[in-house]
Amino acid sequence: MIFKRIIPCLDVDRGRVTRGVQFQNVRDIGDPVQYAQKYDLDGADELVFYDITASSDGRDLEMNWARNVAETVFMPLTIGGGVRTLEDCRRLHLAGADKISIDSGAVSNPNIIREASDHFGAQCVVLSMQVKRRENGSGWETFVNGGRKATGLDAIRWAVHGQELGAGELVLNSIDGDGTKAGYDVELCAEVKANVDIPIIASGGAGTLEDFYEVLTKGRADAALAASVFHFGTYSVEQVKQYLKARGVSVRLEPSV
C-alpha cells in the first residue's frame, strides 16, 4: 500500500521556529521541541527542519535544539540548512537527523550528494530544490540562496541528476508558491514524478485542503509539506488527513494518535 505523507516544515533561526513569506519577513513563533511534540500528537508523518540561521555566530554548531527534538519525539526527522560538506552532513546526522536535506550546496557542488549518499546511504540524503516557473512558460528553473539567485539549471534535469547522484528523496519547493497559500505547483510535481523513481515531496503554496488533495493525486507527490497552514492553526495535520481519506487518498490515521 501507499500511504501519502503529511509533513509540517519548520524554519529554525538561532534555535527558534520562525516563519516568513517568500523567504522574507521572518518572525519568531516558538520553540522547536514544543512544535515537534504538537505535530507528533497531531499525527504528522515526519518533520522537516531548515536551520536558516544566517550568520555563523548565531548558528548553534552543536545543534542542541535538534538533539532535544530527536530525544523527545520518535518520528522521522529531516534537517537541512546551509549543508555544503560531508562534515556538515555528519554534524546534522549526529544531532539526530534521519535525513539530511541538501539544497544550494548541491548546486555549487553536486558531488556532495554522491559523497553523502555513499557515506550515509541514499535513504539519508534529500535533495531539496528551489524551483520557479520560467516566465516564457518553458518549464522550470532551479534557484539558490533562498530563491533569490537563478542558476540556469533546468529543474527536471536537476531532479533526474540528483537521483543519479544518489539522492533518496526530492523536495520540490515552489518559490512561486512559498508562503502564498495559492496552491502547490501540481504540474511541476507531476513532471518530476514522471522522470524519477525516488519519492518526491511537494512544498510551497499549501492553502486549502483541496491543495493537498490535488498535489497528492494529480501531482502524484508522495508527500506534501506545509508550514503556515499548520503553524497558524488553519488546519491540523489530522484534519488534512481526514479530508484526504474522505476523498479516497490513503493516509496513516490511527485511533489515538
Binding site: 501507499i2 500511504f3 541514499a122 533518496g168 523513481d197 525516488i198 519519492p199 496513516r252 490511527e254 485511533p255
Partner: peptide, 28 residues
C-alpha cells in the same frame, strides 16, 4: 511504486511473534 519505500505502512501479524502483541488492528 517509488523505491526506496519511504513511508508509514501497516503490519499484519503472521504466525507467532512476541513483538506483535496488543498493537491494535493495522498498526503503522
Amino acid at each position: 511504486l517509488s523505491v526506496p519505500q519511504m513511508q508509514w505502512n501497516t503490519l499484519e501479524a503472521v504466525g507467532e511473534s512476541p513483538l506483535m502483541q496488543n498493537l491494535g488492528s493495522k498498526p503503522f
